[in-house]
Structures are given as C-alpha cells and as structure tokens.
C-alpha cells in the first residue's frame, strides 16, 4: 500500500473536531479492534483541523490536548502506532491504566475519577497560556473495569458523566461482541449490555467495527458501521450538521496505514 493519508477521506467528516460536550462511542469485536480508529481520532483532534464534507479543511486556533486512559493497551503500543501517524505525544497525556491496574485495586472507581481529573487538569495547565483549553478524553476499554470489578453499571455511567463535565469531548471504546449482548444471562453480560446501551443513548456518533460477515479476506480487515447515536438529537441547531450514517470496509496494512472504502470499490 503506497503510504495512505493519515485520515482516510471517507472518515474525515466524522473525525473532525467533535462538538462540545459530545460523546463518541466506538465498539469493537474480538477480531476487529478499534485501536487504529482511536489513533486517528487523536491525530485529527490534535491537528485542530475540521474536515468539511467537500474534502476541504479548516484550521482551528484552539489548542487541543488529549487525555488517553487505556485499560487494555500499554503506552508503548499507542506511542508506536501514533508515531507512525505523526502524533505529537507531548500533547497526549497518557494514564497508564494497564500497568497500574487503575480501578481494580482498593481505590475502586473513585481512584479512576481522581486520576482522570488529575490528568485533565495537567493537560489544561499546559494549554492555559496559549489560550482556550480543549481536552479530548479517550477512555479505552472502560467496559473491562465493569467486568473485572463487578461494580454496578450505574456507578460506571456516573463516572463517565462526571469526567465528561470536565472535558471538551469524550471518546469511549467498548467491546460489543455477541456473547456480551445477545442473550445476557450472567451478571457480567447483563451489566455489559446495560453499559453499552446506555452509552449508545448518550453518544452522538457510534462507530462499530466487526469482522467481515462473509469470512476472512486478505484485503479487508473488517466492516465499519457509522450510526447516529441517541445523543445526537439536540445538536442539530448548533449547525454541526447531521451525522451521515454509512457502512464501509476498511483495511489495516502491515505498515499501519488504513484504507477505508465502500463495498465493491
């Protein structure tokens, strides 16, 4: 694959800076991870560039910082993938939730909230001198915390609500495999379903990746479905425009480059 643009053209309208206080939900399945998408959200967020529908770009003057909290991936993974894209990691505050087991210990969810808010404050601190501070919060794998601690779904959702108040926009990834949500019977499955559903109702956009329905292909990594979430309704007046729903295919190359294309293209 001759080097791909960091942001696939088909995706650019969705990755442009999200409106204030919005939540974007990314869901993944076992063979199809959202990590590549998360990296592109961070890239687009830091670029301060709004991608218009006609392909043109508009620069923002605000300073954006990213706070990345990742429960299932370590910092090296993000940095390695991000460097290839050209993400400036001085602008990314990483909370190492994998190595510290954030939220799994005695501190519980209260500790998670404290840590996130601390990171958000640090990120703000840097941008304060340069004008308005915008923080994009990425919560990667928060659903794991729900499964591993057995805490109530409501508590996690309250946590999300609490930290969302302090940031410009939030990106949340969760797994949404069928075993979790198809016919929830165990406590783990029930709370997972409740969590994903609850977040989908709050989200402005839901982007779901899954494997190819028809089997494995060598030049397709999976299917990306973009839906309007239930949280999109009240924003139409602000002029952000409708979220265009679509389903397309994507391919992640060996070099980390990503192509997103329509079916049959």
């Amino acid at each position: 694959m001759p080097s791909q643009p960091p942001i696939p053209p088909l995706l650019s309208p969705y990755l442009s800076t999200a409106p204030s206080a919005s939540l974007t939900l990314l869901t993944s399945t076992l063979g199809a991870s959202t990590n590549w998408l998360v990296l592109r959200f961070i890239y687009a967020g830091l670029k301060n560039t709004s991608y218009e529908k006609d392909g043109s770009t508009k620069e923002y003057t605000e300073n954006t910082r990213v706070v990345l909290v990742s429960w299932l991936r370590d910092g090296n993974f993000w940095k390695e993938g991000g460097r290839k894209l050209g993400i400036n990691f001085q602008k990314v505050q990483i909370v190492y939730a994998l190595s510290t087991g954030l939220g799994l210990g005695a501190g519980g969810l209260a500790e998670v909230e404290t840590e996130i808010l601390k990171a958000v404050a640090t990120a703000r601190e840097v941008t304060k001198e340069n004008g308005e501070a915008r923080v994009l919060l990425v919560l990667d794998g928060l659903d794991f915390l729900l499964a591993a601690t057995g805490c109530a779904t409501l508590e996690i959702m309250e946590l999300v609500g609490a930290v969302r108040e302090h940031v410009h926009s939030t990106l949340l990834t969760s797994s949404a495999d069928l075993p979790f949500t198809q016919s929830p019977t165990t406590a783990l499955e029930i709370s997972h379903t409740a969590f994903v559903m609850g977040m989908a109702h709050q989200a402005r956009i839901i982007m779901s990746v899954r494997g190819l329905d028809t089997g494995v292909a060598r030049d397709v990594s999976g299917v990306l479905r973009i839906c309007r979430g239930a949280g999109a309704g009240d924003e139409v007046d602000e002029g952000d425009g409708e979220v265009e729903e679509r389903e397309c295919l994507y391919f992640v190359g060996a070099d980390g480059g990503v192509r997103v294309f329509e079916r049959g293209a």
């Binding site: 063979g31 199809a32 991870s33 990590n35 292909a217 999976g222 992640v252 060996a254």
Partner: peptide, 8 residues
Amino acid sequence: TEKGGGGG
C-alpha cells in the same frame, strides 16, 4: 489484531 488487522 491489536493493530487492527483482521483475524487469520
């Protein structure tokens, strides 16, 4: 898979 590529 972690990078985003498909399964086997």
